[in-house]
Amino acid sequence: MSELVRFSVSLESDLLERFDAFCEAGKFATRSEAVRQLIRERLTTHAITADAANVAASLTLVYDHHKTRLTDRMLDVQHAHSQWVVSSMHVHLTHDLCMEVIVLRGPAADLQSLAAELSGMKGIHQAQLVIIRADESGTPHHHGDGPHSHTH
């Protein structure tokens, strides 16, 4: 068993309240157990996609659009990586919050790096990257009208 290491995390009080409710609903013995499980799940997801050369993904960001220059910085990053950005959609959730859904396609490691760059910006409240394998080998697949080969 590896050595136990302590570290601290700063959270907004409302986020901590929601996390505590998550811990209680999940019957976690402690916050630490919940954090360990969340980290393991995230690392497992990362490992699954790390070997995938080419993937498609959606990155969903919820953010405070009043945060100074956040929207500009988000757009700058997307333009800097335009070879991977397929499309994006902007949704107004509340007076203060917006959601951006960005569709991506490219090497898994590069998309994960792009997602990390965007989700780490100050003012981002929530970020979720969903990755699927997108093999471009031209292997036959089925759309309901018979198997055929092509790339999408």
Results as ranks from 00 to 15, higher is better:
Phe7Val: 06
Leu11Phe: 11
Arg133Val: 08
Met1Tyr: 13
Thr49Cys: 07
Ala50Trp: 02
Val5Cys: 04
Asp110Lys: 09
Ile131Ala: 05
Val9Gly: 03
Arg40Leu: 14
His148Gln: 09
Ser32Val: 03
Glu3His: 10
Ala109Phe: 05
Leu104Glu: 04
His148Pro: 05
Asn54Phe: 08
Glu33Trp: 10
Ile48Asp: 00
Glu117Gln: 10
Asp96Leu: 04
Arg105Ala: 14
Asp96Ser: 15
Ala52Asn: 08
Ala47Met: 10
Leu97Gly: 03
Thr71Lys: 12
Glu3Ala: 06
Gly146Leu: 06
Asp135Ala: 14
Ala50Tyr: 02
Ser2Trp: 04
Leu104Cys: 15
His142Asp: 15
Val35Gln: 09
Tyr63Asn: 03
Gln126Glu: 08
Met74Gln: 15
Ser87His: 13
Leu93Tyr: 06
Ala52Pro: 02
Phe28Met: 11
His141Thr: 05
Ser113Ala: 01
Gly138Ile: 01
Leu15Val: 15
His148Val: 05
Asp110Ile: 00
His79Ser: 12
Val35Cys: 04
Ala47His: 13
Gln128Ala: 15
Ser8Glu: 07
Val77Glu: 14
Tyr63Ile: 02
His152Ser: 04
Ala116Leu: 06
His141Cys: 06
Asp72Thr: 12
Ile102Gln: 01
Arg42Asp: 10
Gln128Pro: 03
Leu59Asn: 04
Val101Tyr: 00
Asp14Ile: 11
His142Arg: 09
Ala52Phe: 15
Leu111Lys: 08
His125Thr: 06
Leu38Thr: 07
Val5Arg: 13
Glu17Gly: 10
Met89Arg: 14
Gly26Leu: 14
Leu70Lys: 08
Ala25Pro: 01
Lys122Ile: 12
Ala80Trp: 08
Arg40Gln: 09
Gln83Gly: 02
Thr151Met: 08
Leu59Ser: 03
Ala56Glu: 04
Leu104Phe: 04
Glu117Asp: 09
Val77Phe: 07
Val103Lys: 11
Glu100Lys: 04
Val101Glu: 01
His142Pro: 03
Asn54Lys: 05
Glu41Gln: 01
Ser119Met: 00
Leu97Tyr: 14
Gln37Val: 01
His79Asp: 13
His142Gln: 09
Ala52Ile: 04
Ser10Arg: 06
Ala21Asn: 14
Asp64Lys: 13
Ile131His: 05
Leu114Lys: 00
Phe7Leu: 13
Ser137His: 08
Glu100Ile: 02
